[in-house]
Write a protein that binds this DNA or RNA. Structure first.
Lengths: 153, 153
DNA sequence: CCTTGAGTTGAAGTGCACTTCAACTCACAG
DNA sequence: CTGTGAGTTGAAGTGCACTTCAACTCAAGG
């Protein structure tokens, strides 16, 4: 078993397209050595980094934040299981929060389905402390909260 | 109390920016009458449509699908509570699925945090039946599954 | 040596959900 | 009548996470 992977191999093993892997490299999320012929060769440890990236994305973390998290790994040595455990644990709150939000939305929706009121002002929508929206222009993944005095009828 | 809202009023009441409301209108998600001076006037019922749109987005539904759902509402009359209940209920499965996915990810992450293995091949990632990814180019919100034989080490 | 599949690059394109802008008009208080 | 703030339009821009493309080179088998 070789100790390095081609981009094609890493792609198959990680389930991430080669183009995405190159993209991750440009963003500084993963790294690769080069052969004499300028081809990428990935250390096996990169497989774990890619796994971490995909998991983090499922949690809802942006590539930029993932990069920051990965930057906190020790550079000198190959990250230990504890290192990975620490990083994974750092998303735990985010994950809990998302699950909590979605669960409440479900419960509220159930309540509203009963009466068809869709009056989620008192339900899912009007919960300022729950919104985690970013600032500035561009697409927003999380929704900004509605006005405090909003009513539906 | 007037029976129609300006775009500014609807914006404040719904918590959605005027630019977004115009965008929704272009996509056919909401509609507005016009005054003599060509300004939009929204019927109060539109407030409920906007609420439905925002809720649906939180569930993870695209605007295109939301439009399709809204198109299924009766055109002749103002939608009844039961109409809204039916639409809301139609997202229920999606919401459950998302919650289930996220919850399993959390559990798996907990397991992996214990050992730092991040070997989510047997955990969160390698679950083909869970992926709901779309096809074609462009950004993907849901992640494609990795190869079946993928291992991490 | 030749072919073939895999890899390389930078630039441009894609899908989504909006926002921003410029140049204009409308509604209404004083 | 005149500001002023709210509204109008189409076109272009934005952020994110990639993908696609063209034109090229590399690696390995026959």
């Amino acid at each position: 078993m070789q100790d390095s992977l081609t981009i094609g191999e890493l792609s198959v093993r990680s389930g991430v397209a080669p183009s995405a892997l190159r993209y991750y490299e440009r963003l500084g999320l993963i790294r690769a050595d080069r052969t004499g012929g300028n081809q990428r060769r990935y250390a096996r440890a990169e497989l774990r980094r890619v796994a971490f990236i995909r998991i983090s994305q499922q949690v809802g973390v942006s590539l930029d934040e993932i990069r920051a998290a990965l930057d906190s790994l020790p550079e000198a040595r190959t990250p230990s299981p504890q290192d990975w455990a620490r990083l994974s644990a750092s998303w735990r709150g985010r994950l809990d929060e998302r699950i909590r939000l979605l669960t409440r939305l479900r419960d509220d929706l159930d309540g509203c389905i009963g009466c068809g009121c869709l009056s989620l002002q008192r339900c899912a929508l009007n919960n300022p402390e729950d919104t985690l929206a970013g600032e500035g222009p561009g697409a927003r993944l999380v929704l900004p909260r509605p006005a405090e005095d909003a009513t539906l009828t």
